[in-house]
Design a protein around this nucleic acid. Structure first.
Length: 513
RNA sequence: GGUCCGUUCGUCUAGGGGUUAGGACAGUAGAUUUUCAUUCUACCAACAGGGGUUCGAUUCCCCUACGGACUACCA
């Protein structure tokens, strides 16, 4: 019988999640949903020195905003709880002991100074790749070189030690990556990685293998930065006797900075000119301890659907011409084979474009609701039907919801000034007189639709011997103050005959003919 | 330095032994519009280089170059 598909997103709570992490979570989620499996969230907090308060909550909030649903995790629990590695601490030791018992791991008592000295010695000797490995361990203080009694003595004395994996000297390690195909690495290029730290916590390498095994993970989808240590993980599965149920690996291409000079990192903060975080993050400067704020996509006005659609396409595509995908469509169409191998750069223009598409696709009523709330905050009240008309008129001009409110201002504020360029070119006694007449007739207009207003205007202008092109810009400036904006007839319709007339009269009074 | 991974328009990418190398974003031009924007149309624009294999390579193989990741008692 086929195993149930189980994937995990396993971030370390050392800060907010950046968009690369979100994409990794997304691909995990898409695969899980596509294959009818489960999505787990596991917090990898085995490094107690790098704990950042709030990071864990941030991660969960960010995933929720993105629409990435977790089936098992610290909030929702599950059959393999706890889902926080620090709380699983007692579970790891036995596996390290098992490895020692089977001769695949050993105790090492070297101090940090010992290690520095070793690396300095090897570097001085021009060894191409200084590392703690099958050669150098013979010169170090560990349970392989020390007499058994001394090892026992050291352990009993409480001497600090770590447990290291005994990586074989000559062995080819290979695995079949779902994205990259066969990857082959020689064991001589891997060092004797620390499995258990001297504080009793496992390192990532041990913890992730033990947890993935215990949690019955079937696919490990993670960033390419893990590729070099994947062979080590394969070795661990083998030595622990779990190779037959080892998950399949898929190493995702990295997300690069826009200039392509390296991978995106959370330390980029706002330096790149666009947010790297889904949600705004309030943190502290690592050195000065000063409070810092990094902007987020949510706060910048991005819709989660647009953000996710864009992110999904950074490294994956469906092979069709379709660009717009809902989460359900992404799930339907996703496949790991179509993830590309090469890294992708971030394209600000394209996220904006996606946002515009999703914003315009929203029902006017929904946009109106947003608009109403925003205007209310500014102390402006607006009738529901009017808010909807404004939203419909203005949304083609908006990238972000906030643009709606900006564009709507003209309906609630009479012009404080008039566009000078248009006035100097288009405003003259004839125009002024015609507009005065138009304003006089407007309040009594029978038809106040956009078409009706236009008909009335045309009629008045004809009587004055003017063409519409000669006055329209002037009229726009008289009504709104600006040279550009949405359709003028619709603006006047929404404003209503009375308000429009008064605005025109005010302009005529203010502007010397 | 060592190990590993990668390389199609400016960007995201499709394609794949014989194609006018396709799409999207951006850019440019035109049309529409009373304006800006929208919309529509068109244009611009790519297989890193060198060797093989082959009747034929952008596609398969090798090398080079370039880029990136990793190289901690961090994940």
């Amino acid at each position: 019988m086929e195993r149930e598909v189980r994937v995990r997103f396993a971030p370390s709570p050392t800060g907010p999640l950046h968009i690369g992490g979100v994409r990794t979570a997304l691909y995990n989620y898409l695969l899980a949903r596509k294959l009818g499996g489960k999505m787990l969230l596991r917090i990898e907090d085995t490094d107690q020195n790098r704990f950042v308060p709030g990071a864990e909550q941030y991660i969960m909030d960010a995933l929720r905003w993105c629409g990435i649903e977790i089936d098992e995790g610290i909030e929702q629990g599950g059959p393999h709880a706890p889902y926080r590695q620090s709380e699983r601490k007692p579970m790891y030791r036995q596996y390290a002991d098992q490895l020692i018992r089977d001769g695949h791991a050993y105790y090492a008592f070297d101090t940090p100074e010992d290690l520095d000295a070793m690396r300095a010695r090897l570097t001085a000797a021009k060894v191409p790749n200084p590392q703690y490995n099958s050669i150098t361990r013979a010169q170090m203080r560990n349970s392989l070189t020390l007499p058994a009694e001394e090892v026992t003595q050291l352990l009993e004395n409480g001497t600090p030690y770590v447990i290291r994996l005994k990586v074989p000297r000559k062995e080819e390690i290979r695995f079949n990556d779902l994205i990259r195909g066969w990857v082959v690495v020689h064991s001589s290029s891997i060092d004797d990685k620390v499995l258990m730290k001297s504080d009793g916590m496992p390192t990532y390498h041990l913890a992730n293998i033990v947890d993935d095994h215990l949690m019955e993970i079937t696919h490990v989808i993670r960033g390419e930065e893990w590729l070099p240590s994947a062979p080590l993980h394969v070795l661990l599965y083998r030595y622990l006797g779990w190779e037959s149920t080892m998950p399949q690996f898929a190493h995702l291409p990295l997300l690069l900075k826009p200039d392509g000079t390296g991978k995106l990192s959370k330390r980029d903060g706002d330096k790149l000119g666009f947010p790297v975080f889904p949600l705004e993050f309030h943190g502290k400067d690592a050195e000065t301890g000063e409070p810092t704020v990094s902007s987020g996509y949510r706060e910048s006005g991005y819709l989660p659907e647009a953000f996710i659609n864009f992110l999904a396409f950074l490294g994956w595509n469906p092979g069709t011409q379709q660009e717009l995908f809902t989460m359900d469509e992404l799930i339907e169409n996703f496949s790991i084979e179509r993830v590309s191998k090469s890294p992708a750069r971030f394209d600000q223009n394209k996220v904006r474009w996606y946002n515009e598409q999703y914003l315009r696709a929203k029902p006017d009523a929904e946009l109106a609701q947003y608009l109403t709330e925003e205007l209310n905050q500014q102390g402006i009240t607006v009738p529901a039907d009017q808010a909807e008309q404004i939203a419909a008129l203005v949304k083609e001009r908006a990238t972000f919801p906030a643009d709606l409110a900006k564009e709507a201002q003209l309906f609630f504020q009479r012009p404080a000034s008039y566009d000078e360029q248009v006035i100097s070119k288009k405003w003259n006694p004839q125009v002024s007189a015609a507009l005065t007449e138009f304003a006089a007739q407007l309040p009594a207009a029978a038809d106040t639709s956009a078409e009706g207003i236009k008909a009335l205007l045309t009629q008045v202008l004809e009587a004055q011997g003017l063409k519409i092109g000669q006055v329209l810009q002037a009229l726009r400036v008289a009504v709104t103050g600006h040279a550009a904006g949405p359709d003028l007839m619709h603006i006047m319709r929404i404003l209503g005959p009375q308000e429009t007339a008064e605005r025109i009269q005010a302009a005529v009074a203010a502007l010397p003919a």
